[in-house]
């Protein structure tokens, strides 16, 4: 219901991609232009590699080709490009990078969709909101740190056999499931104008927490047992860097690969903090 707009948006892009795909021919050469960096504090540079495209090729298969034969398009011997990846099925979130200017997973990025003709160029950059480790690999520790800020877990009494969990309506399960498909990829953070690079971990607790964490706070506030920590979560989100730091640019929901209603989650947290603040004011604590 809430993601109709996003889906319409996604399907328009999908239609364009499908049209490109029809014209694309395997065996063609395309250029992969990569923003490289040898390590933290090192200067960045562009390198271009020429890659022969096989059927169904994606950005990952291009990077694999380059790793095996790291020679740039002008014939210079270089080093294999470093990148982060895992499942290659768009469920682990590891291979997120900026492709042709937009953040997304590289595994689900088909070359036919983005560089359909001979000699096309596809541009890869590391995410800009996290410190670069090397080349396309960035350090997303802050993203996980922010899950601790919102206490994104259910406070169970240990792993002993203590019977079933709370019963839940199918409707609530469907809502929670979508929220729970967040794979911590960081697309929402990369596209957010309010979330900016912060290499100093000491500043993480007061910098913007990000849409992914707000969504997790909502997810656990909605769970029967998780709700018992709602107050703590809201307290954390009412401070500096909390929900109020959201600027409502709403890019997050448009780039989320899992179509999670992030802006809805932000508003739910907004409402909860409003109520929480009034309750606290009147309860005299």
């Amino acid at each position: 219901m809430t993601s109709t707009h996003t889906q319409a948006h996604a399907s328009a892009a999908a239609r364009k991609a499908a049209a490109n795909r029809v014209n694309a021919k395997p065996g063609r050469k395309v250029f992969v232009r990569i923003l490289r960096c040898d390590g933290p504090g090192q200067p960045s540079r562009w390198e271009t590699f020429s890659v022969t495209i096989e059927r169904g090729a994606n950005v990952i298969s291009c990077l694999q080709q380059i790793a095996a034969n790291p020679i740039t398009s002008d014939g210079t011997r270089s080093t294999p490009v470093v990148w982060d990846s895992g499942c290659l099925e768009e469920v682990c979130g590891a291979c997120t990078m900026v492709i042709n200017g937009k953040v997304r997973q590289s595994c689900s990025c088909l070359i036919d969709d983005h560089a359909p003709t001979e000699g096309d160029t596809i541009t890869l950059e590391p995410m800009s909101k996290f410190p670069v480790v090397r080349d396309l690999w960035v350090d997303r520790s802050r993203l996980f740190h922010n899950l601790k800020r919102v206490k994104a877990w259910v406070p169970i009494d240990g792993t002993y056999a203590l019977g079933p969990g709370p019963s839940e309506s199918a409707e609530s399960q469907e809502q929670r499931y979508v929220m729970s498909t967040c794979m911590s990829c960081g697309c929402c953070l990369e596209a957010c104008p309010q979330f900016n690079v912060e290499p100093d971990p000491a500043a993480w607790d007061t910098a913007f927490v990000g849409a992914h964490a707000l969504n997790q706070a909502r997810l656990f506030n909605q769970h029967e047992t998780g709700r018992r920590m709602k107050g703590e979560r809201l307290d954390a989100l009412m401070g500096t860097g909390g929900v109020n730091d959201c600027g409502n640019a709403q890019n997050c929901v448009k780039v989320c690969p899992k179509l999670i209603p992030l802006t809805e989650s932000i508003a739910v947290i907004g409402r909860a903090t409003t109520i929480h603040a009034f309750a606290r004011w009147f309860s005299g604590k």
């Binding site: 877990w153 259910v154 169970i156 019977g163 079933p164 969990g165 929670r176």
Partner: peptide, 9 residues
């Protein structure tokens, strides 16, 4: 049951 208690949807 345990996974259910942990909040698995």
């Amino acid at each position: 049951d345990l996974l259910d208690r942990m909040g698995v949807p």
